[in-house]
Write a protein that binds this DNA or RNA. Structure first.
Length: 486
RNA sequence: GGCCCUGUCGUCUAGCCUGGUCUAGGACAUCGCCCUUUCAAGGCGGUAACACGGGUUCAAAUCCCGUCAGGGUCACCA
């Protein structure tokens, strides 16, 4: 059984700086699943304490992306909740009060060091091959002097006073006991000189005030967890249970980055990945069902999920497998449902698709699509009369001379002209008959026709496609191809 | 560099806690064959892994130690 208070209250705390990140969805999925399974709450908190980088557009994009995935939250800036506000920039007074508490009980101190001095300090430490870190100069400033300088409007930050010796330990839900010597922990800045808190202060204060019971966050936070623990102690608070999730990685094993991988959730949406497939894939990155089934819904995950069953090693993000999974989800969709998704998908990019026509085309491409965006390329020839044919494409009919290719098309044209009703079934026999009288290889014969009709070598089923296109269009295209062949 | 995390097929993983049933299972990718008018989809089959070295034990992927490797982190970013 998972330790900690139940029902759980968990959160994700994305920073609205840039495009909504796939890692945010990853962490959100595990947090939300855990909360839902135990009747708890999943909270979205916006960590916009970095005033120079946070934007409202980015915040809105996070909402959109998470909602697109169906990762909705019980409490958050846009939906409110009992612990509002959920946007840290609106909680400044709270952090200031809490920083004051630490100043008063001596667990934190003002630091008046300039950025220049800190820069020099780091340069010196680097040169001396010493680990970088604050040297504690301002620790020694007496309380009254500190107060006086603050009153005199001298700029300062507030730092946490880390004990010189001893160690800080915690039991990570996934990794067991982790202990870090205090001498290896820096006197972390809690309040910046602009009066805004750093992540460390804000996250601890908010987690406490919002009743967070379990902190499930990325592994990269392990080294700063002692700071957070020490903060809880400084406030006299009971810390939550910590669970450090594996990091998504690039092919080269480094932490996933936008230079080496698509990390924006908007990209996945634009490519036409289905939310259910992306979620399934993300879950697979570190977790599996009891019987190792690979294709499963969020509901199934809800039934079997326990945070301690997440793997500890960080998975490489493998788009190829996502593509396969997405294809599986697309193929599992009924024609009707896939059609609706495609229509909606293209409506968003300003293209209107006729539903009746779509209902005829979709069955022809359903098992060929890995992503919705591929529909466009795959079906162009249905939507434009201006197909372009590269003469070289006809070389795909390897065994046929240029003259024989014309013969093939001429024969096919006769069949097309003479077939009523113009259906695949009606065309089949006469086409085969024409082919036989010519004595060509079936593949070559149909390849000529395929290129004449679609302009491409790889297409949906040919006769079915022709049926959808209609007799007139097919006649025109074969005639055009014949002219092209001379 | 210090500290911390991790180490099963190319990739995601099952197995590890509670050693023997593991000549290590599944999936993606890849290769071959079948199906087939193209491309897919589907079917069948193949290649492919316990990082290394010591121990403990009748027996280790599984327990212990060490080494090595990879990653993360060392900001008035989160």
């Amino acid at each position: 059984m998972t330790p900690g208070r139940f029902p759980p209250r968990v959160r994700i705390a994305p920073s609205p700086t840039g495009a909504p990140h796939v890692g945010t969805a990853y962490v959100a999925l595990f947090n939300r699943t855990f909360a839902k399974k135990h009747g708890g709450q999943f909270i979205l908190r916006i960590e916009d304490t970095d005033r120079t980088r946070s934007t409202r557009e980015s915040e809105d994009a996070i909402y959109r992306a998470l909602r697109w995935l169906g990762l909705d939250w019980d409490e958050g800036p846009d939906v409110g909740g009992p612990c509002a506000p959920y946007r840290q920039s609106e909680r400044s007074a709270i952090y200031a009060d809490h920083a004051r508490m630490l100043l008063d009980n001596g667990t934190a101190y003002r630091c008046f060091c300039t950025a220049e001095r800190l820069e020099e300090l780091r340069a010196f430490q680097r040169a001396a091959k010493r680990p970088p870190g604050y040297d504690g100069l301002c620790r020694k400033i007496p309380k009254d002097e500190s107060d006086r300088r603050a009153t005199a409007a001298e700029p300062f930050v507030i730092r946490l006073r880390i004990p010189d010796d001893g160690a800080t330990a915690f039991d990570d839900l996934l990794r067991g006991r982790i202990e870090i010597a205090n001498k290896d922990v820096d006197d972390q800045v809690l309040m910046k000189s602009d009066g805004f808190p750093t992540y460390h202060l804000a996250n601890v204060v908010d987690d406490k005030l919002m009743g967070i019971t379990h902190v499930m966050r990325a592994e990269e936070w392990i080294p700063s967890t002692p700071k957070h623990l020490l903060l809880y102690r400084a406030f006299g608070w009971e810390p939550p249970v910590f669970c450090h999730l594996p990091l998504l990685r690039n092919q080269d094993k480094s932490k996933i980055s936008k230079r080496k991988n698509p990390t924006s959730l908007e990209w996945y949406q634009e490519q036409g990945y289905l939310p259910a497939a992306l979620l399934n894939f993300l879950a697979l990155m570190g977790w599996t069902t009891n019987d190792n089934t690979e294709i499963f819904s969020v509901d199934r995950m809800l039934e079997e999920f326990a945070p301690e069953t997440i793997t500890t090693s960080s998975p490489v993000f493998d788009l190829t497998k996502l593509d396969w999974l997405n294809g599986e989800y697309i193929r599992a969709l009924a024609t009707d449902a896939l059609t609706d998704k495609l229509i909606a998908f293209y409506a968003e990019r300003g293209r209107t698709l006729d539903r009746a026509l779509m209902l005829r085309i979709v069955p022809l491409v359903r098992e060929r699509l890995k992503k919705l965006v591929e529909f466009d390329e795959m079906t162009q020839f249905f939507f434009t009369d201006a197909i372009t044919i590269d003469l070289a494409e006809f070389d795909a009919a390897k065994k046929l001379t240029p003259d024989q290719r014309k013969q093939a098309l001429t024969a096919a044209l006769a069949v097309v002209r003479g077939t009523t009703p113009f259906t695949k079934d009606a065309m089949e026999a006469p086409m085969k008959a024409a082919l036989e009288s010519l004595g060509f290889k079936m593949g070559d014969f149909f390849m000529c026709l395929r290129i004449a009709i679609t302009g491409k070598r790889a297409t949906p089923p040919l006769l079915e496609s022709m049926e959808v296109l209609g007799q007139d269009v097919c006649v025109r295209r074969i005639e055009a191809a014949l002219r092209l062949l001379g």
